[in-house]
Amino acid sequence: MSDSSTLPPARLHPEAELARDALSTPVLSRAARLARWAGPDTRVDAGAGLVDEQLPAAAAELGLTGEDAAADASEAWRVAVDTGLVEVVDEEEGTVTAGDGLGVLTGGSPQDVLGVWLAALETVVGDASVPDLGGLVDAIAEGEGSGGIDFDALDWDPEAEAEFLDGVLGNLYLLTVGGEDADGTMVPLPALAASVIVPDDMAEPTNDVLEQVSDAMMRLDDQFRMLEPVGLVEYRPVDEALMADADEEPAAPVDDTDVARYGMVRLTPLGLYGLRARLLEAGFEAPAVGDLVDKGADALLDGTAVFPPAAAHAETEQWLDRRDPLQAARELLAAARGADQG
């Protein structure tokens, strides 16, 4: 996807509605809860992470249990720091205080709230590009005590992994804004993986390419599981029976023709807003329905000429709602006639 190309317009929900959605996401709501929980006795390490001794209390505050409770609490705390809900007061002492972001969540405008959520989204997207911590620890150990990461041993290229995920999310955005359903349709995970793996000029994928698609699908399964709690996507995970050992008998009969078993994903309205913001930040032209409401009829006709039908209808409807019907009709007729005096 070239950053010089103009994308189809996104049909965004009202910011007030999106802000409410953002506040209700597990990632942001947990971070906010920990920010309110933090007090004078809270301590962080050199990286602003909550010290290990306080993770059980943080997990309990969030109602988390099980073997992943401490890790989930640590992640929630990091989001709180990254989004400005918590600020470090004294790095040497490791003391913290509530940040300005916490006040934004309770008293800020919808746009301000969404700004905090976008910061949380960046943290989670960054995490989704990182391999599992077990492999990361092993790779550091293989760095021969240098403290660096042996990326060859990890078989992980940070830039390539980030580009891969960005490419997948970009294609998911295109499928959403280019479709007829304003809220998007569920996309099969294999199709999404293939969209960034299979070359456009390849009529029939080779076995090697199909294996790459399968590997990418498994990576995306892990990544979308991470991205769902921040509200970016609605995700139906890959059926675990597909990941079982080939020699094992399935617990129940399975339908190999059911594409949903291979994972299904779609952007949420909040996710559409978030990806559009990321695309704009990256230099793409990513218009939204409503951008033309203050323009003249000529701009409306020119702009909607390349829109998908549903988006063109929505844009025209908003344009008409802002004008007197008779005057709007005259403007449209004049614009359609152009320089033709006949």
Rank of each mutant, 00 (worst) to 15 (best):
V293G: 08
G94W: 05
L333M: 15
D90S: 06
E331N: 08
H13K: 11
L279M: 11
E122F: 07
Q318N: 03
D324F: 07
L50E: 09
L220T: 09
R225P: 00
D157C: 06
A244L: 06
Y173I: 00
A310L: 01
A311I: 02
A46H: 15
V254W: 06
E240D: 14
L326Y: 10
F151R: 11
A70R: 15
P309F: 05
Q327W: 09
E281F: 03
A260D: 10
P14S: 00
E159A: 13
A329H: 09
R323E: 13
S195K: 01
L227V: 10
A252L: 10
A203G: 04
D245E: 12
P56R: 13
F307D: 07
D112A: 15
M1H: 03
A120Y: 02
R30S: 14
G107V: 06
D68M: 15
A128D: 12
P287A: 03
K295V: 01
Y173Q: 02
L64V: 10
A336R: 15
G184W: 04
W156L: 10
L102W: 08
S214R: 11
R278T: 09
V116R: 08
D90I: 05
L133K: 10
D200C: 00
M243H: 06
M226L: 10
P110A: 09
Q111W: 02
Q327A: 14
I140L: 14
V44A: 14
E122G: 13
R225L: 03
A329W: 13
A59L: 11
A38I: 07
F224A: 04
D152T: 14
A297Q: 08
D90N: 07
W156H: 15
S5A: 06
D127Q: 13
T185M: 09
V177S: 06
D72P: 07
P14A: 02
A191Y: 02
L280S: 06
A216S: 09
V306N: 10
P205W: 01
W117K: 08
L270G: 05
W37L: 06
P308F: 04
A16R: 01
T42D: 14
T123W: 04
E17M: 01
G179W: 00
A80W: 08
S109M: 04
G148V: 14
D222I: 00
E180R: 11
L292P: 08
V96M: 06
A299M: 05
Q111A: 08
A282K: 04
G147C: 10
E61C: 15
G108T: 02
A153T: 12
M226W: 04
G147S: 11
F224V: 03
G338Y: 13
L12T: 02
D21M: 13
D155S: 14
